[in-house]
């Protein structure tokens, strides 16, 4: 139970970084931390105490195995996170070229 709670704290740390920081790179890093916490959560919900890794070798009996589905989901979310980070970092570089700064308070050509 406390593992889940700590995982949620990690989520909140990322959310704080994302909402309160002014530097664009810091905001993207906050996004990354949130992603880690969700990945962590996916692994946690598949975990069973004293289980074993869900990779099949020959002549092994299936007993008390960790739930494999969340791990497959976790792999997918890692890839999705990678492509989002790629795109957002690309945007950040272009914004730096156009505005000459990473500071979000100085990047205000639109009213919002």
């Amino acid at each position: 139970m406390s593992l889940y709670f700590l995982c949620f704290i990690l989520f909140c740390v990322g959310l704080y970084c994302l909402l309160r920081k002014r530097n664009i790179i810091k905001i993207i890093i906050g996004l990354g931390i949130i992603e880690y916490s969700v990945n962590m959560f996916l692994i946690l919900i598949g975990y069973r105490t004293n289980g074993r890794a869900p990779i099949f070798a020959r002549n092994q009996e299936i007993s008390n195995m960790v739930d494999p589905l969340p791990q497959a989901l976790c792999l997918t979310t890692i890839v999705i996170g990678l492509s989002i980070t790629l795109l957002v970092v690309g945007l950040a570089v272009r914004i730096y070229e156009k505005y000459g700064t990473f500071d979000i308070t100085k990047i205000r050509r639109l009213k919002g």
Partner: peptide, 26 residues
């Protein structure tokens, strides 16, 4: 410059939304 700024804002907001949804699904 303006469309890059808008896209960045949209990307951040949209990613938060997606991560909320993912946490809900998990």
């Amino acid at each position: 410059a303006s469309s890059l700024e808008a896209a960045f804002k949209y990307a951040i907001m949209g990613s938060i939304a997606s991560l909320f949804i993912l946490l809900g699904i998990a």
